[in-house]
């Protein structure tokens, strides 16, 4: 019993220490001195690497999720004769929930794991140490641009996901299932509130962007620089980031829509 308590205590302390290290790393990366012009260029390059290169997976997934939503929604709505509300259902599900959440999950798998592996390999091959010895802070040079790039990219990807999802929904609803185009779009427009629905979705994706990228860069920076260490850290990134996204989503939804 005492053993179990001791293990629990040690485990908790380890977790808290990790959280502390992650916070210190982020603070040093964000608040350290740097040359503005250089950081901007590096960040832009990373927006390309983590954002633009994630576009294809986001577009394809968005399209299919919109199509599936319309298909599933239609079969239920048609029973009540309210299939005109399909546009509204698709748009609200996407803007409030599926857009930010699914984009963040895909982003964790596509860009988060890549960030962890890249930074981890830089650590394993002593590139981070050699940056330090050249007198360049790797937190500013390597971590900060990647962190900002993730925070910028995810909300934009999420908006694109929602837009393409609505188009997918329209494709299935209007073209295939024969819902009236006018009522589909009109219902969607009147039922969707810019502040309550779209902006809340964007706020969610900003939060997810910060958390997912933070987990990814920290796991890469803090890993044990061996082959097994990199593999473990990459897995951790995807698992922790996904769980964090789902947990935070519940919390944010409760605050935004649950009158909490």
């Amino acid at each position: 019993m005492m053993d179990w308590v001791a293990r629990l205590g040690r485990g908790s302390l380890d977790r808290i220490a990790v959280l502390g290290r992650a916070t210190v790393m982020l603070a040093q990366a964000i608040f350290g001195r740097s040359q503005v012009g250089v950081s901007w260029r590096l960040t832009l390059a990373q927006v390309h690497a983590v954002g633009v290169l994630s576009l294809s997976i986001i577009l394809v997934s968005g399209l299919f999720i919109g199509m599936v939503l319309a298909l599933q929604g239609y079969t239920i709505l048609v029973d009540y004769g309210s299939e005109q509300a399909l546009g509204q259902m698709v748009a609200l599900s996407l803007a409030r929930e599926l857009g930010p959440v699914v984009t963040a999950l895909l982003f964790a798998g596509r860009a988060g794991s890549a960030l962890t592996a890249e930074i981890g390999l830089m650590k394993a091959t002593e590139q981070l140490a050699s940056l330090e010895m050249i007198g360049v802070d790797p937190l500013r040079r390597v971590i900060a641009p990647r962190f900002w790039a993730g925070c910028i990219s995810l909300p934009i990807l999420s908006i694109i996901f929602v837009a393409i999802g609505c188009l997918g929904g329209a494709l299935v609803g209007i073209v295939w299932l024969g819902v009236d185009a006018g009522s589909f779009w009109a219902n969607m427009q009147s039922a969707t509130d810019f502040g309550a629905d779209i902006m809340n979705g964007v706020i969610k994706s900003i939060v997810f962007g910060v958390v997912v990228t933070w987990i990814a860069v920290f796991q890469g920076y803090d890993l044990e620089p061996t082959a097994a260490g990199i593999a473990r850290a990459t897995t951790k990134t995807v698992v922790y980031a996904s769980l964090a996204v789902l947990g935070l989503d519940f919390f944010l939804t409760a605050v935004m829509f649950g009158e909490l």
Binding site: T125, E126, Q127, A129, S130, E132, M133, I134, G135, V136, D137
Partner: peptide
Amino acid sequence: LFRLRARMGMLFQSGALFT
């Protein structure tokens, strides 16, 4: 510390070039 390191050079075992 970073200013001091600019006065030192270090050759790493692996070379540690930026790939």
